[in-house]
């Protein structure tokens, strides 16, 4: 195993900074390269799928040639509406209200007839 001594006592600030910036730029440039390729591959795959679909069904899918035809305000409004819709999903309730009869089971613990301290009451003549 090789251990690199990266800490140099005479490390030059400017050289380190330049190196740092160039590594960040090159790392992200590599990502640009990779995602440009995957983007092109994806576009090709979509075009192939679309061509297959047309060949098998004979129907041409509706394609918006230029998305800029849709005004930006409309896109923003649709996005906002979708966001509000997806964020405000509640449980759907049945809205049916039922009244159930509550029946109390008999218990000698709260029976008035057998409790010890009976309250006084006037006897009818």
């Amino acid at each position: 195993m090789v251990i690199l001594d990266t800490v140099s006592p005479t490390a030059d600030m400017w050289a380190n900074s330049g190196l740092g910036v160039s590594i960040v730029v090159s790392a992200l440039s590599l990502l640009i390269f990779a995602f440009t390729i995957t983007g092109n591959l994806s576009k090709r795959a979509t075009a192939k799928r679309s061509a297959k679909h047309i060949a098998s069904t004979g129907k041409t899918p509706i394609v918006i040639k230029d998305a800029s035809e849709i005004p930006a305000n409309e896109i923003a409004a649709i996005a906002m509406a979708l966001s509000l819709y997806t964020e405000n999903v509640h449980d759907n309730e049945s809205n049916v209200i039922t009244i159930r009869q509550l029946q109390r089971n008999y218990s000698p613990w709260n029976s008035k007839a057998i409790r010890l301290l009976n309250t006084a009451y006037r006897r009818k003549k």
Partner: peptide, 11 residues
């Protein structure tokens, strides 16, 4: 992903 060159702005 749709516009990868924007990564340069982040860099």
């Amino acid at each position: 992903i749709s516009n990868p060159k924007l990564l340069l702005l982040g860099a």
